[in-house]
Deep mutational scan, measured.
Amino acid sequence: RYRTTFTSYQLEELERAFQKTHYPDVFTREELAMRLDLTEARVQVWFQNRRAKWRK
C-alpha cells in the first residue's frame, strides 16, 4: 500500500482536532474524514501515529 500524502490544509485540520482531543470518537473521525476527503481509517491511523509522536 502506498503512503498517504496529506495536504497542508489536511494536516492543519488534523492538528487542530488533535489539540482538542487525542482520542476522537468515531463520529468526530468520520466528520473529519468527510471534510478532508480522506477515509476514516486514514484519520484513525494518523491519530495513532500522532499520539505516538506526542508521547515521545
Results as ranks from 00 to 15, higher is better:
Arg1Trp: 04
Arg1Asp: 15
Arg1Leu: 10
Tyr2Pro: 05
Tyr2Arg: 06
Arg3Asn: 15
Thr4Ser: 07
Thr4Gly: 06
Thr5Trp: 05
Phe6Arg: 02
Phe6His: 05
Thr7His: 04
Thr7Ser: 08
Thr7Ala: 05
Thr7Gln: 05
Ser8Ile: 03
Ser8Glu: 12
Gln10Cys: 00
Gln10Asp: 04
Leu11Val: 08
Leu11Arg: 07
Leu11Ala: 08
Leu11Gly: 06
Leu11Lys: 10
Glu12Ser: 09
Glu12Arg: 03
Leu14Ile: 04
Leu14Phe: 03
Arg16Ser: 13
Arg16Gln: 13
Arg16Glu: 11
Ala17Trp: 04
Ala17Val: 14
Ala17Thr: 09
Phe18Glu: 00
Phe18Cys: 01
Phe18Pro: 01
Phe18Thr: 00
Gln19Ser: 13
Gln19Gly: 14
Lys20Val: 11
Lys20Gly: 10
Thr21Met: 11
Thr21Ile: 06
His22Ala: 12
Tyr23Asn: 13
Asp25Trp: 00
Asp25Cys: 09
Asp25Ser: 08
Val26Cys: 07
Val26Phe: 14
Phe27Ser: 15
Phe27Leu: 08
Arg29Gly: 04
Glu30Trp: 12
Glu31Gly: 13
Glu31Trp: 08
Leu32Pro: 01
Ala33Asn: 02
Ala33Asp: 00
Met34Arg: 15
Met34Trp: 07
Arg35Phe: 05
Arg35Cys: 11
Arg35His: 05
Arg35Ser: 08
Leu36Ile: 12
Leu36Pro: 01
Asp37Ser: 14
Asp37Leu: 07
Leu38Gly: 02
Leu38Phe: 01
Leu38Ala: 10
Thr39Met: 05
Thr39Cys: 08
Glu40His: 08
Ala41Glu: 10
Arg42Phe: 11
Arg42Leu: 13
Arg42Ala: 10
Val43Asp: 00
Gln44Leu: 12
Gln44Ala: 12
Trp46Glu: 01
Phe47Pro: 01
Phe47Thr: 03
Gln48Asp: 14
Asn49His: 08
Asn49Gln: 11
Asn49Leu: 06
Asn49Gly: 10
Arg50Trp: 02
Arg50Gln: 10
Arg50Cys: 03
Arg50Met: 07
Arg51Gln: 13
Arg51Cys: 07
Arg51Trp: 09
Ala52Asp: 13
Ala52Pro: 03
Lys53Leu: 11
Lys53Gln: 14
Trp54Gly: 11
Arg55Gly: 11
Arg55Val: 11
Lys56Gly: 13
